[in-house]
Structures are given as C-alpha cells and as structure tokens.
Amino acid sequence: MADYFNAFEMSPVPDGPDAVAPDPFLGIYAMPMFVKIPTRDLRASTDFWVRGLGFVDLFSIPGQIVHLRRWAFQDVLLVASDGDATPSGASLVQVFVSCVLGQVESVAEACRQLSPDSVTGPYDTAWRTRDIAVVTPEGAHVTFTAATPFAPDSEVARDFAAVGIFAPGDSGGGA
C-alpha cells in the first residue's frame, strides 16, 4: 500500500463551497507542467482563452507564441502553426483546469458569448465536481472543474475510502 498524505497546503486551488478564486499568478517560475497547443489563428485563440476562459497573456512573441496563465501552475502555450493543429492519427488536446464553484457559470457564459456552441454543461460528476466542457477555436477540449462540497457520510466518501483515499482529519489515515 502506498503512503499517501494530505498535501492540500501546496495546492493553489482554494477549498470549500464559498471559496474565492485567486487572482491570476503573474510570477515567473520554472513550470512543473504546461500544455502546448498549436493554432492557425493565434489572435483568435488568445482572445478566446483570455476573454472566455479567464487566462491572462503573461507574455507573447508576436506571430510565434503566447504564454497564457490563470493560477499558479495553470500554464498554456499557444504556438503558431501553419498546418493542421491535429495531424492525422494524433489525439485531441484535452486539458483540465481547476476553478471554484462560483466561476463555473461565468466561464460558461463568457465562452457562449464568444462561441455559442462551444460549451457543454455545467454537469456534476461522480467524484464530486461540477464541470463544463469547452471546445476552443483551435479545437482543444478544455474542462473547467470545481469541487462540490464534501459530505463525510456520503456515498462518494465511502467510495473514496474503499480505495484508500480519506478525508483530511479522517481516522482512516488520510490526514
């Protein structure tokens, strides 16, 4: 059995049903992970990611690359591409972005204003999140996902405990 431990303190994702989203993180750091997405229309893609999905243009090299960011460790690089953004046989780009419950509807509405058919949801998942699925102008599939309130006596909590994932402070060993 793995020795899991509670490490929520290192996450930039705020917790709780009334959590407030942090401002975009503008610091420069060595990115532990990022997504690189090719696009034929750098300007249109940047506009959608900024006005629809709430990212900021951290920096750009005109006509080549745009470094987008929301919270710490939510980095996306849009890169100019002359060819097909998804070469034959390649899989679609699929990105999952954490947000807070209060942002789900506003992000969905902002994206619908830019592209009416770009959003599916919101919908709730079995692992206690409320999500929206968005298809961006360059064809990336972006899911915004927010935790819903955790009920320690719920079926979800029992399902998590059955696979060794316990709520913080639970006597089962999760804290």
Rank of each mutant, 00 (worst) to 15 (best):
L26G: 07
D18W: 03
D159I: 10
D47I: 06
A162C: 11
A108R: 14
A80H: 00
V142G: 04
S98E: 12
A19K: 07
D75S: 09
A167V: 13
L101Y: 13
G54V: 11
G174I: 05
P24C: 07
Q94C: 12
F34K: 03
F25D: 14
I37D: 01
L77F: 14
L114K: 10
T39Y: 00
A126Y: 09
A157H: 12
M31W: 09
V93R: 00
G102Y: 08
T136A: 13
R130P: 03
S118P: 02
R112H: 05
S45W: 00
P14Q: 08
L114P: 00
L78P: 03
W49A: 04
I37V: 14
R128T: 05
T143W: 06
V119N: 04
E138P: 00
P87Q: 10
F34Q: 09
A146P: 04
K36D: 15
Q113C: 09
D153R: 08
I165P: 14
I165F: 15
S81A: 11
T145F: 12
C111H: 10
I65E: 03
V104K: 02
S11T: 11
F144E: 01
F34W: 10
A108Y: 06
H67W: 15
D23C: 08
F34N: 09
A19M: 10
I65W: 03
V119Y: 02
F34V: 09
G174H: 09
A151N: 15
A167L: 13
D47L: 08
R158E: 06
A167M: 14
Y123N: 02
Q74K: 07
S88C: 09
V100C: 05
F48T: 04
S154A: 15
F25A: 13
G63V: 03
T120D: 09
W71I: 03
V97W: 06
V76D: 02
L68I: 07
E109S: 14
T148N: 05
E138L: 00
R158Y: 00
G172Q: 03
V134E: 04
A110H: 11
F25V: 13
A110K: 10
P116A: 02
R70F: 06
P152L: 02
F166S: 00
M1R: 11
D159K: 15
V95D: 03
I61W: 13
L42M: 01
R40G: 06
L68F: 02
L101E: 15
F25N: 14
W127A: 02
G89C: 06
L53W: 02
P137R: 06
Q64F: 08
H141G: 02
D170N: 07
G89D: 04
A162H: 10
A90F: 15
V76M: 03
A162V: 11
V119K: 08
A80N: 01
D23R: 15
E155F: 04
A126W: 08
R128W: 06
P87Y: 07
F59V: 10
T46R: 13
I65A: 03
P38L: 00
V56N: 08
T129Q: 12
S60R: 15
S171W: 05
G173P: 12
L92N: 08
I37A: 00
F150P: 01
R128H: 09
S88L: 11
M10T: 09
G164K: 01
L77W: 10
F73P: 01
G63Q: 01
P116S: 01
V95Y: 05
L42Q: 01
A133W: 05
S88F: 11
A110Q: 08
W127S: 06
A108V: 15
D84S: 05
G169A: 05
T143S: 05
G52L: 12
D47S: 10
